[in-house]
Design a protein around this nucleic acid. Structure first.
Lengths: 241, 241
DNA sequence: TCGTTTAATTGGACCGTTCCAATTAACAAA
DNA sequence: TTTGTTAATTGGAACGGTCCAATTAAACGA
């Protein structure tokens, strides 16, 4: 994680910024940083671009590079800081203990939509995994996942009761690092209300998507219905990537 | 938009991919592309990186660059394709005519939170702009925006009844290109139900954030409550940016 | 003092190269 | 044919350089 030059620069600059080392909210110019870190200006630029895309700094040609004082307020329920995109590692638990309750686990034929999303033919099968996720015994997410059996032939109840992505990373040596993610809202249905302890007027947040392995293989189609108070997705949007 | 070398490569590759020119789902290697386009491999890499971060292609060292066949399904309510992040230009209207109904427009002292988010002092003022957005006369979003008066001293009811970001872009020559965005869900309150024509059990999607000018100046704090059927935020998440 | 012109600063785009790591293909040996 | 080794392919990281554009600072003249 930290053997790359530009990654090291990122890490160090992050520290220095958080330590308020740049009191005037302005970073040294790129040529000076290049000198300081004894790396090429290209690597400095690469590091600064990453930070800029996170909203931590703003760059202004002719003027300089400035720290965004509002970066701190950026606290989401999801962090995406681990080595994969699994909920287990991405969730901002804030001290609460996460747990998983397995609701259902079986093998079913791939529906038409699943065939399309997971590159399967009509005669192939998928695991159907329904789980309830909790934080300190408070349920907050109903998760329905579909994974081709051919990708993980040896999935069992025990594995599925824990972090599937971490299991895959250890056994198959393939990380789940990318996904299409769609976020929406919906009224709670009877099942939601019962499992998530919601009143009929209280809604759920919906996060659904397709998760990919690093090589682009679609690994899982997932549908997550969250207690509305637990869904907060925060991001930094920039048009000039 | 298209005078930059790597942008041109992006545009052209996009076309070729959409035209299904690469039937085997594999792009030429970077060195060949460099030759084809008569640009450096660095520029090719830059272009491919953008496409990879959009989820359009996957790159695999030693193997090649491959097209993601699932990219098409990626249709969001929001596109972020214009020159700024305004709703007016970002909304996927699908043929419906967008309109704005001005609910309230006044100048108020900046609250403590607004002072912090917009870099204001206690004696400064902000516009408070409440608007209802519609698509073909169907209301779908209640928008509450707060903009420092010092940034746009001449805002009036007519401007505020249209696209504020476009107005700013034309008059101040400053584009709104970046924002922190937070997405969540909430039960609908009386006001929501009345304005958005919702039943008590039907929820709203909430999108709130801070919008910045290109130079990093916080321009607007916005709170948007959407009819739940109109909120669909789709994105591509990748851990190795 | 004020406004204008000129120079210095600073990030942006792009080039072309070197070395490397992961993967795949080719080849040779059993 | 199968298996193990070697070579070629392909993307990744990093360097260091050129030229440019936006901005700011300095110098200058009225």
């Amino acid at each position: 994680m930290a053997d790359l030059v530009y990654q090291q620069v990122i890490t160090d600059l992050n520290k220095r910024i958080m330590a308020d080392e740049f009191a005037n909210k302005k970073l040294p110019d790129e040529r000076s940083l290049s000198e300081q870190y004894q790396v090429s200006r290209s690597s400095i630029k690469r590091a600064l671009n990453v930070l800029a895309n996170q909203g931590l700094i703003f760059k202004k040609r002719g003027s300089g590079t400035f720290i965004n004082p509002l970066y701190l307020k950026n606290q989401s329920s999801f962090k995406y800081e681990g080595t994969n995109l699994g909920i287990t590692d991405s969730l901002n638990t804030e001290g609460a203990k996460p747990s998983i309750q397995l609701l259902d686990f079986k093998v079913v034929p791939a529906s038409q939509e699943l065939q399309q999303d997971l590159f399967l033919t009509a005669d192939e099968f998928v695991y159907e995994i329904k789980r309830l996720r909790l934080l300190d015994d408070q349920p907050f997410m109903i998760e329905s996942g579909y994974i081709p059996i051919k990708l993980v032939p040896e999935l069992n109840r025990q594995v599925v009761s824990g972090s599937i992505f971490n299991y895959v990373q250890e056994t198959l040596n393939a990380a789940v690092t990318k996904s299409f993610l769609s976020i929406s809202a919906d009224s709670s249905n009877d099942n939601d209300q019962q499992l998530l302890q919601l009143k009929p007027t209280e809604p759920v947040g919906v996060m659904s998507g397709i998760f990919f392995l690093d090589d682009g293989t679609p690994f899982e189609v997932s549908n997550m219905r969250l207690h509305y108070q637990y869904m907060k997705y925060t991001t930094f949007v920039s048009t000039n990537s």
